[in-house]
Amino acid sequence: MLEARAFEPGFLRRLDGLVLGVQRARTVREGRRALGRVHGLGIEPESFKEYTEGDDLRFLDWNAFARLDDLTIRTFRAEREIEVTILVDASASMGLPRGDDKLGMALGLAAALAYVAMASNDAVRLGAFTAGRGGTVRVETTPLHRRRELYPAFRPFVSALRCGGDTRMAEAVGRLLLERRRAGTVILISDFLISAGEYEQTLRLLLGARHEVKVIHVLGDRESTGAYPPGHYRVRDSETGELCEVTFGASAAEVCRRRVEKLSADLAAFCATRGIVYARAFGASHFDDIVMREFPRLGVVR
């Protein structure tokens, strides 16, 4: 499975030079290193300003006062952290087509992004959502981990995750937001084989909670090219169980490709209008290229 790729030492060494692309800090926490515009406690000097009443005398530059007889306050950059939540779609559609290993790719990407995020000692957690047999939405997350030494702690979660159920993305995200955590970065990884209204509602919820959202659109090799074995088939939807008859062949493949492009273009357009980073990850065979080339190009990582 492809998720194991994200824990290979050689692959992780290649990720050491990357950092997560974050547009603005959302969370502030003392004693933690983070770059942000909010001034505050920290160890990295930023500038000087004249003393005004109420300033903390601990930051008064006594050497300058002795030489210049001016009261000058040293200002520091606040040390802040970003809480990164990487949410993986674990619905039944992520398990098909079986040879494409979409779920494995999604989990591998999620783990790789977690590793990159942990390079900045950001708090990172992985999550997955699916729907149970009774239609209930389940959202599972790992604890937040900050140090890279704890990166292997994600492995049991990644290895044990199985797909199934419907894709009820908006409901799952709504349940996640009920935790009322500070706004951070949410990376949503899914095949987005849902209605446009469903994913638009999902993304609006995340944006409404002031999260910085990144969308990773995952599709399999065969799925994205329509390269199914030619012939006549009954085709069953993995989530709804709906049946139809399809004759696969060259023309059907072309129709499939057009359909995927349209789906991707609609999603990308919606993201673009909302300032959401959108990245396509089509084909498990391109896993390394996607992580090492596409993600930096699209701003997912830097």
Partner: peptide
């Protein structure tokens, strides 16, 4: 019978 991720991709040919 072939199980696929979604019939969305085949709604124009099915």
């Amino acid at each position: 019978t072939l199980e696929v991720s979604s019939l969305m991709l085949f709604d124009e040919i099915a």
